[in-house]
Simulated assay, not measured.
Amino acid sequence: MALQKVLPYQGNLVKYDLIIKKQKNIVLNINNGKIKISAPSYAHDWEIEALIYKNIKKIITVINVHYNYRKIVINNPPDDTDYVYVFNEKYPLQLTQENVNTKIINHQVFLLKDAGSYDENVKKLHSFLKQKFSCKFEQLLNKWAKTMNLSYKNLTIKTMIRKWGVCYPQTKKIVLNTKLIHFNQTVLEYVIIHELSHLVHHNHSKTFWYHVEKYMPNYREKVEILKKPGI
């Protein structure tokens, strides 16, 4: 369980989560715009804070970039608006206790509020978006499989942390990250082309990238978009 801690910096309070683990060193990470510290039980507060202060400028830069590129905002302060990007289009998002099911009405997403955390609400939102738009993923995958003269046997759409897509050439299974729904359709198409290309080239050799470029000459632009933090 994480302990929520704060330390002062330039007149503001910097929040961070501290997790005590069986490890030798203090480790600092930024995840979803939040500072995460894991440390051994014998670590002193001053050691942890010294590590944060040492990297504070870089930490603030990473956090600011994360917030500039966010695709989902839930539980903002009252004067802000919650939202979610669906295929790069911004939809107002409203938490509600009144709707039986999560739904989209008049270009606004109504999300049945979870009594738990922000992460639980995001999980519920992704589950809804997956159900509503999975056919779009399949249509685009079929389109590019036909264009590239390739075939696959199975498509799975699921939320992943470190991968936008996966290809299993032996079984011809393709896995796509639900979070791709937040981007422009061409970004999703890039990932589809990328994974289909692995049916031909099983690694990231030059020949593989030439194959990707053949079908999407500007694929590097899509790669840069996917590198942006915020999801």
Rank of each mutant, 00 (worst) to 15 (best):
V86T: 00
E213M: 12
L155W: 05
K130N: 09
I48S: 03
V122R: 07
V187W: 03
M160L: 15
E98R: 05
N68G: 08
K71S: 01
D80M: 07
K172I: 10
Y85N: 04
L129E: 12
L129W: 00
Y118V: 11
M216V: 12
Q139Y: 09
V27W: 02
Y16S: 05
Y42P: 04
Y16C: 10
Y53C: 09
I225M: 14
V14P: 08
I231W: 07
V191P: 00
K143V: 06
K222G: 00
K222W: 00
E224A: 12
H44I: 07
L226S: 10
K54I: 11
L226G: 03
K21Y: 01
Y53E: 09
V84R: 01
L129N: 10
K214L: 15
G230L: 15
N31S: 14
L141T: 01
K124L: 10
I35M: 13
P78D: 10
M148R: 02
G230Q: 09
E213F: 06
V187R: 01
E47G: 03
L176Y: 02
H126W: 08
Q185F: 07
G165M: 06
L226R: 04
I59R: 06
K71L: 09
C135A: 15
Q94N: 14
L180Y: 02
E189R: 00
S117M: 07
R162E: 10
Y91K: 12
H126A: 04
K15D: 09
E189K: 02
Y190T: 01
N149V: 13
Y67H: 15
I37C: 12
E224L: 14
K113F: 01
T178M: 10
T61I: 14
H66E: 14
V14C: 09
K90H: 08
R220I: 15
N31Q: 15
E189Q: 06
G230M: 08
D45V: 05
H198S: 11
M148G: 00
L95A: 09
L129A: 03
C135T: 13
I193P: 01
A2G: 11
K222H: 02
K54L: 13
E49P: 04
E213N: 07
T102N: 13
L28H: 06
V122F: 13
I37G: 05
S127Y: 10
H201A: 03
E224D: 08
A39P: 08
N25C: 06
L51F: 01
C167Y: 01
E120S: 14
T102V: 11
L13M: 09
K54Q: 12
K24M: 05
K153P: 02
P78W: 01
K136D: 05
M160Q: 15
V166G: 01
